[in-house]
Design a binder for these strands. Structure first.
Lengths: 234, 234
DNA sequence: CAGTGGTCTAGACCACCTT
DNA sequence: AGGTGGTCTAGACCACTGG
């Protein structure tokens, strides 16, 4: 029998299981019935139960181990998922008008801290790009980025006056590994000027390092305008 | 035939698909073959292909639509997953020794900003708990939290001198909805004192609102010590 | 060793969406 | 209208691991 209105689907099972946890019927740390028994209860196959429980475990509600069974997590290791949109999308999602402006773009010798951070050989050239992202005429983000030509040779011919380095990289280097950090930093004179805030102001800051198959591609610092907050619900 | 060493599993397919995207064989925005064709290519059933592609879509690499097919996302909407551990776990994972200290805990009338934020009726009582989390003797996080007795009556009898309000809440209210934000704030005199930083220092700050079935449970501000960064890889 | 979850097959119907 | 992904069934073997 195919799934239809009167069939129990894996989504129904997820909802039911969650409500039993909420209601306290299935206490934290307690063991759930095994898949076969649940399949009988829900009048479906074990495959369907399996998918429901697998997804719930993936979402951090349950812990599953062979032979040991499925357990309600006592301190749900809820994982917050932050979608990391491109700046343009973020501004437009707020109903704003995105505008990009290049500040400077030049090839230079990698500063020592960058060489250390990206494991570059000393004295290696990097493309240093600084730019601004606006919401209308309001500063939204100041970006300070270095791109490694040894990994992305095309960068020497790239023109960042019209397209931001991030969008350019995504088009050019389709797939990468990323390390992303967020922290609070202090606006120095440069940043304060670009973001139009007093010097010394706290600035929400992102740092992003990107590799392509083990080769360092880019290091970027993103300084967000005053009042920015990164939010998620779960 | 069951899965065994020579069978193509959904994991193999995921790896293969990812490598084809990396290598540029499947360009961004391009359409993948449909599931049936891929099943033939990989000598497996469509079910297995389906699981592989479904998970890749879930991870943000692909976009799938009925009839339209499966497409490589041009600007991979990579979702960063930050695991939100409890403070204790976070400190211990760093190899540190966790220590908790209650600063104050008292019932008070909800300030107006809090009433607005949590949609409380004005003049409603809330439990205000302030506490510190240490790594050894080094301040790690200062926590300023309000708990709504109307939603969690037990809070009036709770003793926060030994257990932190977050751990207590997890034990007491096993299941909740959460809104989590991160921002950069400025250390006022109080925060500066607790975190042992100069006043005015930028402080990485988390704000967490929790509901239980639509009822506001708690609002918490978490101020992290200097140098804190939230990091993830993907 | 034996129970539990992990995964695959082969086939089917359906929902949705683009054309 | 027809193709594509979404999901379910019924059955099977396997991998891991707790007792």
């Amino acid at each position: 029998m195919p799934q239809s209105s009167d069939t129990t689907s894996y989504k129904d099972i997820k909802i039911t299981v969650l409500s039993r946890i909420r209601s306290g019927e299935w206490q934290p740390d307690s063991l759930l019935p095994n898949e076969q028994d649940l399949a009988v209860e829900f009048s479906c196959t074990r495959t369907t139960v399996n998918r429901a429980l697998r997804e719930l475990a993936d979402e951090g509600y349950l812990e599953r181990r062979r032979k040991a069974g499925t357990r309600v997590l006592s301190a749900p290791q809820r994982q917050a998922r932050f979608t990391i949109p491109m700046v343009r999308d973020e501004v437009e999602a707020m109903g704003g008008t995105y505008r990009y402006a290049l500040v400077s773009s030049k090839l230079e010798i990698a500063p020592e801290w960058l060489s250390a951070r990206l494991a570059l050989s000393s004295g290696q050239n990097v493309m240093h790009v600084r730019c601004m992202h606006f919401n209308g005429n309001t500063p939204f983000q100041y970006e300070d980025r270095w791109i490694v030509p040894a990994s992305v040779p095309q960068v020497k011919q790239a023109d960042f006056s019209q397209i931001g380095p991030n969008e350019w990289l995504i088009q050019t280097v389709p797939f990468t590994n990323v390390e992303l950090s967020f922290l609070a930093s202090r606006a120095d004179a440069t940043i304060a000027g670009f973001l139009d805030v007093p010097e010394g102001e706290p600035v929400f800051t992102g740092e992003r390092i990107t590799w392509l198959q083990g080769q360092p591609v880019t290091f970027a610092k993103m300084f967000f305008a005053a009042g920015y907050r990164m939010t998620t619900q779960f």
